[in-house]
Amino acid sequence: MSDDTEAGRLDQHTAERLLDGAGGHAPLHALLTTATAPGRPEELGGEDAAVAAFLAASAPAARKSRLTGLRRFLTAKVIALVGGSILLTGGVAYGTGHFPGQAPEPSPSSRHHEHHHGGGNDNTPATRYSPSPTHRPSSSPSASPTTSRQHDKANASGQPKKSPNPHSTSTPPRGSDNDNGNPPATGPGKGKNETTRPTAKPTQPNNIRRKPQ
């Protein structure tokens, strides 16, 4: 190989300088400078095709991220609406004293009975009564909404009264046997909460519920 026969002509230091764009071996420097001349039009013929690919690659990504953002925003709104309406209706129920087991008059409880036996309106009492567990601990304000469910369960285990649904035992404390229809009322309420959960993070409804308190 001629690599070694002409070793004296170009040492490694000079080679490095040439590779870095500095001078040195004049003919080689001229050759390398020529090789780095500015781009010629014929070398840039693919510009529009590259730009088209660039725009095509940019557009779907932007659209997708916009859609994802919109979906997230809407999900948050739905959660806020559901949580807010639950709270509001619960607050109304609390204010008007329409609590299951709390009302001494027979008329509200009988009305609830009708609701439950009506069948189709199960959801209405469900949303109405489901917040009552969160409000009932307000007698002990330190209980946070996130722990209220556990609190309910603790009550359930502590309750001597049998209830058909252990998750709904937050209502029986003040209930009598007349209010047997009410525990199922909270049962569907829970169920409704659970149906909203898959669309959102489980903690969010609790957080939203906490705000108005």
């Binding site: 690599d3 071996h25 080689l28």
Partner: peptide, 17 residues
């Protein structure tokens, strides 16, 4: 890479000569 580039430049210099 340094070695290959060095050898390439030397060969280019030879060819130019």
């Amino acid at each position: 890479v340094r070695t290959a580039a060095y050898r390439g430049l030397r060969r280019l210099a030879d060819r130019l000569a």
